[in-house]
Design a protein around this nucleic acid. Structure first.
Length: 275
DNA sequence: AGGTTGACCTGGACGC
DNA sequence: TGCGTCCAGGTCAACC
């Protein structure tokens, strides 16, 4: 999400939205498409940023009314994009064919288009009109302190993997980075969070921060279809130690990586390196 | 209240 | 070719 947000920001910040189009599928829209169109048309993209797993597009809007009527200020809005599992946010020239499963198009003043494409329709689009800025449900994994991190998990009677994926605690850790951080911290994903020592929770805090920063540096993990705003894949998947490596040898000790289901998700770990 | 499970969707990979 | 099965960067509502 960080890679997508910074890439889209670099490409479209300052552009005016001259027209919008939305698909007829109901799933992607938490705000009705008509209301979204009304709020976005004529607005200017001030900034594109990441909040947890959400991408927030800040839209500044011109005053309402013309020469005859006294102009009325319109407050800025936030266009909230969640990519779900297969969502993409692409910036394309208008003559590039629109991919299948495109659900939203923002036509920009310079002729390019910002497109939201999502085959599985797990992604969501919404509009926020309220004054205060969107912060999301939990704490930011990249800025949380070690002490806050320990406090968040020390009383959770659930596998540490499930706790890491709980977005109301930490906002923005997904399945790949949960598995990779647990490997680097040497912690078995099934371990009850409340039974980990403060020392080990601190190690996990460090490992998570390092994994996320390394992934951002390499443009994200492209396991099957993740791409950035230009449709370019990331490279962090080449650094994965356990994710989707079930049956393959551990890069540290050589024994076979195991794949199990924890918290309803495919979970990968080394039985020797993670205790 | 906190924890766990299945449902929501489509498509790609693989086996027969 | 074609059909069935498993798998998937994530939430949610509905259960225990």
């Amino acid at each position: 999400m960080e890679t997508v947000a910074s890439g889209v920001h670099a490409r479209v910040a300052g552009q005016q939205v001259v027209d919008t189009w939305f698909s007829a599928k109901p799933e992607p829209f938490k705000t009705p498409p008509a209301a979204m169109a009304e709020a976005l048309n004529g607005g200017t993209i001030a900034r594109v940023r990441r909040v947890g797993k959400h991408i927030v597009v800040d839209i500044a809007r011109p005053p309402e009314g013309g020469a005859e009527v006294a102009p009325r200020d319109r407050p800025p809005v936030e266009w909230i994009v969640h990519l779900g599992m297969t969502g993409r946010l692409l910036v394309s020239a208008a003559d590039v064919p629109v991919p299948p499963h495109t659900h939203a198009i923002l036509r920009l003043a310079d002729g390019r288009e910002l497109r939201f494409v999502d085959a599985r329709r797990f992604g969501r689009l919404a509009l926020r009109l309220t004054g205060e800025s969107f912060t999301g449900p939990g704490q930011e994994p990249l800025t949380i302190s070690a002490a806050e991190f320990v406090a968040l998990f020390r009383n959770r009677r659930t596998p540490i993997k499930a706790a890491l994926l709980n977005q109301s605690l930490l906002h923005g850790v997904g399945n790949i980075y949960a598995d990779e951080a647990l490997f680097r911290a040497g912690i078995r994903p099934t371990r009850q969070a409340s039974r980990l020592s403060q020392e080990r929770l601190r190690r996990l805090h460090t490992a998570l921060s390092e994994v996320l920063r390394a992934a951002i540096r390499l443009g994200g993990s492209s396991v099957s279809d993740y791409v950035d705003a230009d449709g370019v894949r990331g490279f962090f998947q080449l650094e994965h130690r356990v994710y989707r490596r079930g049956g393959e040898p551990c890069r540290v000790c050589g024994i076979s990586i195991r794949r199990i289901i924890t918290a309803g998700r495919g979970t990968h770990f080394c039985p020797r390196c993670q205790r």
